[in-house]
Every structure is written in C-alpha cells, then in structure tokens.
C-alpha cells in the first residue's frame, strides 16, 4: 500500500466533507478510492433500511450486474453476515464458500470476483450498514489494508451524520431514510439520462456528476432539476 497515496486520500475525503457536500457524490468518491488505494476491483457502500434490508448507497461502478451482486446479499453473503454480526467478514477465496453461500458465490464468480471483504459501518452501538470490497484475484488480504478499509467504512458512517447536521433532524432513523431516498432519486435520474442519451447506467452517472462538477452544483440538486425538467441543462439532452 502506497503510504503517500493513502495520506492523500484521507485528506481528500476530509476536504470533501464541507458544509454543503452531496452524500451520494461523496460516497462514490469513497468507493473509488477503495479501489485505488486498497487494490480492490469493486467497492460498494450498503445501508440498512428500517426493515433491515441492505440497500446500495454507492458503488465504484454503477452497472446493473455489480448492483445486483450487492443486492443479492440480502439473502446470503459476506455483507449480510458482517451487518448481522457487526464484525468484519474476510473471504480470501470465494470458491471454498460455495456451500455457505451458493447463490452469492455463483453470481460473484460470474462477475469475475473471487475474494471479498465486508467491513461494518458502526454508529455508537448500532450497525447501520457495511462497506463491501471485491477482488478479482484470490488470496489473503493484507491486514494493514483491512485496517484502512475499516477506517474508510468509518468515514462513510461519519459522512451520513455530517450530511444531516445542517438540517433539523438528528434522529438516526430519519437520517437514514433521507439518505436512502437520495439514492432512489439518483437511480431514477440514471434511468432517464441513460434512455435519453442512449448510454449505459455507469455513463449516465458519470455524465450527471460531470455536469454537476462543471457547474459547481450539488449532484442531487442537478438530479432533481433534471428529473423535474424544471430548467434547461445543456449537455444532458434537456
């Protein structure tokens, strides 16, 4: 692990937790850095809704197959175990776990992943979600890397709280609900933009984010304006 890159990453994440930051944008940055710093091939942040169902808040790639792999873990898989136990779940070789998680292992294999790590997102005495890391190559995870991954999971949790500090509610349930709804908005926008421009879901996301950055606006504000059709957004086909 490159120490300099690591330090730079945490500085970058801290810099992005400014007063008016956008949660989805931030968590996507965090999953991207998981890939860059930890040598993961894919990463996702999952939050539990009030039914205890894990829902994807951000992923290093917005393609349907990867999101499916995260969602599938509501039935079985390392992320669900991590969420339930509140402890990290580290699986260096998924092919040995086919009996433990038959569906998950098959689907992960089809997507080209053979090793996986899930780190709990803890808030006081509650587990609110998990950070999920996938690797294409099997083999043990570097223990130092696991510590860093846990630190990144903690940053993700902090961002959830930070997001709402400027608003009224300080109640966790409500904070999570609002966070999950902001993700639903992004999915709706991805659909609309992908269809309009004839692009895939990942490009729809990065196009939207690129537009927001170029115009110095929050991702969710642009998303809302785009789906409502309430203002012209040149470049987004509207």
């Amino acid at each position: 692990m490159n120490q300099q890159l690591l330090a730079k990453t945490f500085v970058e994440l801290a810099d992005n937790l400014v007063a008016d930051f956008d949660l989805i944008d931030f968590l996507r940055l965090l999953t991207d850095r998981c890939v860059g710093v930890l040598g993961a091939d894919a990463a996702g942040v999952l939050l539990a809704d009030r039914d205890g169902e894990l829902r994807v808040m951000a992923a290093s790639d917005e393609q349907v197959r990867l999101l499916e792999l995260f969602q599938l873990q509501n039935d079985e898989g390392p992320c669900l175990e991590c969420f339930r136990s509140g402890s990290p779940v580290i699986v260096p070789d998924l092919s040995r776990e086919a009996e433990r998680w038959p569906r998950f292992v098959t689907t992960a294999h089809r997507s080209g992943f053979t090793a996986v790590q899930a780190l709990p997102m803890r808030l006081r005495d509650e587990v609110v979600g998990a950070l999920n890391l996938f690797r294409a190559a099997p083999g043990p995870f570097d223990p130092a890397g696991t510590l860093v991954a846990q630190a990144l999971a903690d940053v993700a949790t902090i961002s959830l709280l930070q997001q709402r500090s400027s608003h009224r509610s300080t109640i966790l349930n409500e904070q999570l609900q609002t966070a999950l709804n902001s993700r639903v908005l992004i999915e709706q926008v991805k659909g609309k933009l992908a269809e309009r421009l004839g692009i895939d879901m990942e490009r729809a996301f990065t196009t939207l984010r690129g537009y927001a950055r170029a115009h110095n606006r929050r991702l969710s504000d642009v998303a809302r304006a785009f789906v409502d059709g309430s203002e012209p957004l040149p470049g987004l086909g509207s």
Binding site: R55, Q71, E187, K190, G191, L193, A194, E195
Partner: peptide, 22 residues
C-alpha cells in the same frame, strides 16, 4: 419486497419512452 435499483431506473426510463412525468 426489496428496493431494487432497477425499479427506480425503469421509472426514469419510462419518463423518456412515454414522454411523461416521474
């Protein structure tokens, strides 16, 4: 059951295919 991301994406897709609001 399950908040599938595809349901939200499909809703967005339909706004374009049908030319209607969300």
């Amino acid at each position: 059951d399950g908040h599938r991301a595809e349901i939200d994406q499909a809703t967005g897709i339909l706004t374009v295919q049908l030319g209607i609001g969300i």
